[in-house]
Amino acid sequence: DTFTFTLDGIEVRLHGASEELIKTIEELLKRDIRWEELEKWIREWEK
């Protein structure tokens, strides 16, 4: 599955994202998160 969203005018596609990761990103997007914050968060998630 591919999860697609737009952040700061950039279309982002995550391939093979888990349901948990998708739900977490959706929550972060509701908080009007900035790209830099999401990028940092995703790097931490990957560890």
Score class of each variant (00 low, 15 high):
Trp45Tyr: 13
Leu38Cys: 02
Trp41Met: 14
Glu27His: 08
Thr4Trp: 07
Phe3Gln: 02
Ile22Cys: 04
Glu26Met: 14
Trp45Lys: 01
Asp32Met: 05
Leu38Met: 13
Arg31Gln: 12
Leu38Thr: 00
Leu29Arg: 02
Thr4Ile: 14
Ala17Trp: 09
Leu28Phe: 12
Glu44Cys: 04
Leu14Cys: 03
Leu21Ser: 04
Ile22Lys: 11
Ile25Asp: 00
Ile42Asp: 00
Ser18Pro: 10
Ile33Asp: 04
Glu11Ala: 05
Leu38Ala: 03
Trp45Val: 05
Thr6Ser: 08
Ile25Tyr: 01
Phe5His: 01
Thr4Tyr: 10
Ile42Met: 06
Asp8Cys: 04
Ala17Met: 09
Arg13Thr: 15
Glu20Asp: 10
Ile25Phe: 03
Arg43Pro: 03
Ile42Tyr: 08
Glu44Ala: 05
Asp8Asn: 07
Ile25Gly: 00
Glu26Trp: 06
Lys23Tyr: 07
Asp32Ile: 06
Thr2Met: 09
Thr24His: 14
Phe5Ile: 07
Asp32Lys: 00
Asp32Arg: 00
Ile42Leu: 13
Glu36Gly: 08
Ile33Glu: 03
Val12Glu: 01
Thr2Ile: 12
Glu11Arg: 03
Arg34Leu: 07
Ile42Asn: 00
Gly16Ile: 05
Glu19Asp: 11
Glu20Leu: 12
Glu19Trp: 13
Glu27Val: 10
Gly16Tyr: 08
Glu36Gln: 12
Thr4His: 11
Asp8Ser: 04
Lys30Trp: 04
Glu11Lys: 05
Leu21Tyr: 05
Ile42Ser: 01
Phe3His: 03
Glu39Tyr: 09
Asp8Leu: 05
Glu36Pro: 14
Glu19Ser: 12
Ser18Trp: 03
Gly16Ser: 07
Gly9Val: 04
Arg31Lys: 14
Thr4Gly: 07
Arg13Asp: 09
Leu7Gly: 00
Arg31Ile: 08
Thr6Gln: 10
Leu21Trp: 06
Glu36Val: 14
Ile33His: 03
Leu29Glu: 01
Leu28Met: 15
Glu37Cys: 05
Thr24Lys: 15
Leu28Tyr: 06
Ser18Asn: 10
Glu19Pro: 14
Glu36Met: 07
Thr6Trp: 14
Phe3Glu: 01
Leu7Ala: 03
Glu46Ile: 13
Ile22His: 02
Arg13Pro: 03
His15Pro: 13
Thr24Glu: 15
Arg31Asp: 09
Ile42Gly: 00
Lys30Val: 09
Leu21Met: 15
Ile10Asn: 10
Glu36Leu: 12
Ile25Gln: 00
Glu26Leu: 15
Ile10Met: 09
Leu38Gly: 01
Val12Gln: 02
Arg43Asn: 12
Trp41Arg: 07
Gly16Thr: 05
Asp1Met: 11
Gly16Pro: 11
Leu14Asn: 00
Glu11Tyr: 07
Lys30Arg: 12
Glu19Met: 14
Arg34Ala: 10
Asp32Trp: 04
Thr6Ile: 15
Asp1Gly: 13
Gly9Tyr: 05
Gly9Pro: 00
Glu19Asn: 12
Ile33Thr: 06
Arg34Val: 09
Lys40Val: 12
Glu11Trp: 05
Ala17Lys: 04
Arg34Met: 09
Asp32Asn: 12
Arg13Gln: 15
Glu27Asn: 08
Glu44Pro: 00
Leu14Asp: 00
Phe5Lys: 00
Ile33Met: 08
Lys40Tyr: 10
Ile10Val: 14
Thr2Phe: 11
Lys23Thr: 09
Glu36Phe: 11
Lys23Phe: 10
Asp1Tyr: 13
Leu21Ile: 14
Phe5Met: 02
Ile25Pro: 00
Phe5Trp: 02
Ile33Val: 12
Val12Lys: 01
Arg13Ala: 14
Lys30His: 10
Thr2Gln: 07
Ala17Glu: 02
Glu26Asp: 08
Trp41Ile: 15
Ile10Thr: 07
Thr4Gln: 07
Ala17His: 03
Ile33Asn: 03
Asp32Ser: 11
Glu27Thr: 12
Ile22Asp: 00
Glu20Lys: 09
Arg13Val: 15
Asp8Val: 02
Thr4Lys: 07
Glu11Gly: 02
Asp32Val: 05
Leu7Arg: 01
Asp32His: 12
Trp35Ser: 03
Glu44Leu: 03
Leu28Pro: 00
Arg43Ile: 10
Thr2Val: 14
Gly16Lys: 07
Glu39Val: 10
Phe5Tyr: 02
Trp35Phe: 14
Phe5Gln: 00
Trp45Asp: 02
Arg34Ser: 15
Ile10Pro: 00
Glu26Ile: 13
Ile22Glu: 02
Trp41His: 12
Glu37Thr: 10
Glu36Asn: 11
Leu21Lys: 03
Arg34Asn: 10
Glu11Pro: 03
Asp8Tyr: 03
Leu38Lys: 00
Asp1Lys: 15
Thr24Asn: 15
Leu7Asp: 01
Leu21Asn: 05
Glu37Lys: 05
Glu26His: 11
Asp32Ala: 10
Lys30Cys: 04
Arg34Trp: 06
Ile22Gln: 07
Ile33Tyr: 06
Glu46Ala: 05
Leu28Asn: 02
Gly16Asn: 15
Glu20Met: 13
Leu14Met: 09
Thr6Phe: 13
Glu19Cys: 10
Lys40Gln: 13
Ile10Asp: 02
Asp8Gln: 06
Ile10Phe: 14
Ile42Pro: 00
Lys40His: 12
Arg43Met: 13
Ala17Phe: 08
Asp8Glu: 08
Leu14His: 00
Ile25Arg: 00
Ser18Met: 03
Ile10Leu: 08
Ala17Asn: 03
Thr24Ala: 15
Asp1Gln: 15
Ile33Lys: 03
Glu11Ser: 06
Thr4Cys: 10
Leu29Trp: 02
Lys30Leu: 14
Leu38Phe: 15
Ile42Phe: 06
Lys40Thr: 10
Arg43Ser: 13
Trp41Asn: 04
Trp45Glu: 05
Glu44His: 05
Glu11Leu: 07
Glu20Gln: 11
His15Val: 13
Leu7Thr: 02
Phe5Ala: 01
Thr6Cys: 11
Gly16Cys: 11
Ile42Arg: 01
Arg43Val: 11
Trp35Cys: 03
Glu11Cys: 12
Glu46Trp: 09
Phe3Arg: 01
Thr24Gln: 15
Ile33Gly: 04
Thr6Pro: 02
Thr6Tyr: 15
Thr24Gly: 15
Leu29Asn: 01
Glu37Met: 08
Glu46Met: 10
Ile42Thr: 01
Glu26Ala: 07
Ile33Leu: 08
Arg43Gln: 14
Lys23Asn: 12
Leu7Glu: 01
Ala17Thr: 04
Asp1Arg: 14
Trp35His: 04
Leu21Val: 13
Asp1Trp: 09
Lys23His: 11
Trp41Phe: 15
Leu28Val: 06
Glu36Ser: 12
Trp35Glu: 01
Glu11Asn: 05
Trp41Ala: 11
Thr24Val: 12
Asp8Met: 04
Phe3Val: 04
Gly9Ala: 04
Glu27Lys: 08
Thr6Leu: 13
Lys47Cys: 06
Leu7Val: 15
Glu20Thr: 09
